[in-house]
Amino acid sequence: MSVSVQKPYQLTQSQKMMVFILSMSLYGLSNMFTELIPSIQLGFIELSVEYFAFIPLTLCILFHPFYAAVGASLGEIIFGELMLGQFGGIGEVEKFITFSLGMFIAGILVRNPLNRKQVTIAVMAGLLVYHLLGAIVDIGKVWIGVDEFEAVSGLAESIVIVEGVALLNDLLFSGILFALLPTLYLVPRLYGKIEPLLGMKPRNNKVHYSLGQIITPKLVVIAVVLASIAILSEFLSETEWAFGEWEPEFLETIGNWFIWVPISLAALVTIVVLVVIRSRSKMNTKELKNVG
């Protein structure tokens, strides 16, 4: 009696690259649209659309967490920072690492994409990692003294209250409205339908892993090292060692209409990727028919 061994979910290098580019272009495009949405100020609380994180979250859960997470972070830097002339130099390393880490953790925590409870816990855990690391960085900069901010005059500890409120605001407003709810809607509906378009098989939702198998000591060590690098880079960005900042002067003379240039480029990249995916899907279908 032979026992079949379930192979782990794997993608080819071309498929990984396709997921990477798709995540980069889609999230980069969405990130630029958030620049056009005005924020609402309620006292000292600012309600704003920070991101459409459901895009990388959905791709991380359905496909490859690493390539989708890194692709989204790079897309934000290229289309949402560099092309808009808002690149913060070494300070961008912190957001790149923390956002990628949060999206990656959310992706690996989901063993069954059809399990809404798993998806909910994974999404909120990933967002908590991202926002909590950002809050720790901001608090640390004030306490160490590389940044000046005192919500209460003469009381630097007040930054904890301000960052705590901002953390809850990000999780409960942007996190639920623009990350959790759309992801809960999209993942079950796209699972098993979008993968064939990229010439891939859906993740096996019948293979179950314990959290101990997913969150390994190696992963924890890597996460701590990356978080430390992110914190250090943000600290350096507030000192004389900061470098790499880029804010071209010609954008002030051109005007706000320039934002449509990177939006058009990101949309073009997205369309090209979707066309390539569609053509590959048709080729795979023809090959299967010929073999049959």
Rank of each mutant, 00 (worst) to 15 (best):
V3H: 12
S4V: 14
Q6N: 05
Q13T: 08
M18Y: 01
V19D: 03
I21S: 00
I21D: 00
S23L: 01
L26K: 05
L29S: 01
L29V: 12
S30K: 05
N31K: 09
M32V: 12
I40L: 08
E50F: 05
E50H: 12
Y51V: 12
Y51W: 14
P56C: 04
L59Y: 11
L59R: 06
L62D: 00
P65D: 03
F66D: 02
F66C: 08
Y67R: 06
V70T: 13
G71F: 00
A72H: 03
S73N: 09
L74I: 15
L74W: 04
I78W: 10
I78C: 00
L82S: 10
L84A: 09
L84V: 11
G85A: 05
G88K: 08
V93C: 06
F99R: 06
G102E: 09
A106R: 06
A106H: 07
G107R: 05
L109D: 00
V110D: 00
P113G: 03
P113V: 05
L114N: 05
R116Y: 10
I121S: 13
A125P: 07
L127G: 13
H131I: 14
W143D: 00
F149Q: 04
E150Y: 06
E150M: 10
V152H: 09
V152S: 07
G154V: 15
V162W: 14
A166N: 15
L167W: 09
L168T: 06
D170H: 15
S174H: 06
I176V: 03
T183K: 02
P188L: 00
R189N: 03
M200V: 14
N205H: 12
V207D: 03
Q213H: 11
V220K: 09
V221N: 08
A223Q: 14
V224D: 06
A230R: 06
L232F: 15
S237L: 07
E240N: 13
W241I: 01
A242R: 12
E249N: 12
L251D: 04
G255Y: 09
N256A: 10
V261D: 01
P262N: 01
I263P: 09
I263Q: 14
I271K: 13
L274T: 11
I277P: 10
S279L: 13
R280E: 10
S281L: 01
V291C: 04
